[in-house]
Design a protein around this nucleic acid. Structure first.
Ligand SMILES: NC(=O)c1ccc[n+]([C@@H]2O[C@H](COP(=O)([O-])OP(=O)(O)OC[C@H]3O[C@@H](n4cnc5c(N)ncnc54)[C@H](O)[C@@H]3O)[C@@H](O)[C@H]2O)c1
Ligand SMILES: NC(=O)c1ccc[n+]([C@@H]2O[C@H](COP(=O)([O-])OP(=O)(O)OC[C@H]3O[C@@H](n4cnc5c(N)ncnc54)[C@H](O)[C@@H]3O)[C@@H](O)[C@H]2O)c1
Lengths: 211, 211
DNA sequence: AGATATCCGTGCAAAATTTCACAAATATTG
DNA sequence: CAATATTTGTGAAATTTTGCACGGATATCT
């Protein structure tokens, strides 16, 4: 496990570069310099070069980077040269939007199973094809389908227990939409998506700007 | 404008502390030490004290912090002693979930208007009460209702134009759900909520953990 | 009351991250 | 082909952020 010393922000930025490069590739841009890419991402150009330097040399001096090649390399680094299998717990308002979102599959992420406790929902088939499973079947279904990433979209009060279910089924990565800090064993990867934190940042900024 | 030297991460953490303190208040915990709070948030206790020190002294040595008092102070710092008025553009799958989310109002954020281009949607009233406006009315409605935060949930290709609309209507803060980097004038506050970036982080972690 | 334990606020050092600036490599121009 | 212009990759400096460790304030125990 060469966890080495690569900063988490670097990974986050790689993801942003990848996004940007995808757009450029669509626009049929062949080559791009770190300056231009930096401008597009709102990031310092030296930063981009430093980030890439953790993983190798991908550019040509005096020229720049081949868009497609760099995109391919970044995706390889991030592990996006495969499709990751996700399962969702809590198919409410947000869960439905997530499962319906067809961009995920294009990015290499697929919902292979969904779960809920609501008896009115369990057993129904979603427009995207998945049948809503009972929570009792989580362990079995997760193992059967080889789920790698667990997505939690239950009410906050149920998120921790949902996390435990995933953990004991052997899932090693969680994406949590509930506004709580999950307690997980060492070695688990947890990412929180928290809209309110972002809103609070905006509120602070607006409040400061006034004074 | 005393933008001072307060790190953005500090603001983000304040938001997390506030979340945690709210839970504690509900559990009727009166007093908490930085060590305990730190544990709950997965953060170093000195960090918490440092963060708070930017804004004043809120604790009592040998005792800790009064939960309710600290919560109040943090909310005041973040500017949450008022309700912020938001408008949403793009009432699709995600937009519907956002508008339906009743936690926002509890946290001090309210959707006072929603917009879309789809003629089939414009004019309809949502269960949460708002009528879907045409994009042409954005400028007027935003000014009329005093919208302070613009939320963008359109397809990525339309997000920049939606941003322009908000900007020219005088909105100073944007919450962007589309997976692109918005170009905005100096002084605007923009926060991106990007699920895929989070997923990419998980994918990287899982890929590394294997080797 | 004195001794002991707890815990905040903060100076300072360490660690992490960002940015600069320049050599080296490639391209272009006259 | 030499001179000039780009642009990467990277060491070193600058900046930011984190974490330690301790003085001082408060509480508790004997
Ligand atoms: N909707 C949003 O825009 C939004 C925004 C920010 C955060 N969130 C967070 O996302 C989560 C989901 O939000 P939502 O709006 O979809 O809520 P919701 O109430 O619409 O849906 C929750 C779903 O979880 C299911 N559920 C409840 N308990 C469960 C359990 N123990 N196991 C499995 N499933 C269970 C419910 O049956 C329901 O289908 C919440 O934590 C919310 O705070 C949502
Ligand atoms: N649904 C998700 O879970 C999810 C996840 C990650 C990111 N996103 C992003 O959020 C955004 C919205 O996603 P969605 O799933 O709700 O998409 P959607 O297609 O369901 O909804 C988009 C809505 O925007 C409206 N719209 C289109 N062009 C517009 C314009 N010019 N002005 C105003 N409104 C316009 C459409 O009529 C539609 O109602 C997208 O950028 C998407 O990439 C969504």
């Amino acid at each position: 496990m060469k966890f080495s010393k690569i900063p988490a922000v670097t990974i986050t930025r790689l993801s942003i570069y990848s996004r940007c490069l995808e757009t450029l590739a669509q626009e049929d841009v062949k080559i791009i310099a770190s300056d231009k890419l930096a401008q597009k991402c709102g990031i310092n150009p030296a930063q981009i070069r430093k980030d890439l330097a953790y993983f190798g040399e991908f550019g040509i001096r005096g020229v720049g980077y081949f868009v497609k090649e760099l995109l391919f390399e970044i995706k390889r680094i991030l592990g996006l040269n495969k499709t990751w299998k996700m399962a969702l717990v809590g198919i409410g308002n947000l869960g439905l939007a997530l499962v319906a979102h067809e961009n995920f599959i294009r990015q290499g992420y697929e919902f292979v199973a969904v779960f809920d406790v609501d008896p009115a929902k369990v057993g129904r088939r979603l427009p995207s094809g998945q049948v809503i499973h009972n929570m009792d079947d989580l362990d079995q279904v997760v193992k059967e389908k080889g789920v790698e990433i667990g997505v939690i979209a239950t009410p906050a009060s149920k998120a921790q227990s949902a996390a435990y279910r995933f953990i004991s089924a052997g899932v090693k990565a969680l994406l949590n939409f509930a506004p709580i800090q999950l307690q997980v064993p060492e070695g688990m990867a947890v990412e929180n998506v928290d809209f309110t934190v972002k809103l609070d940042n905006l509120a602070y900024h607006l409040t400061m700007a006034e004074s």
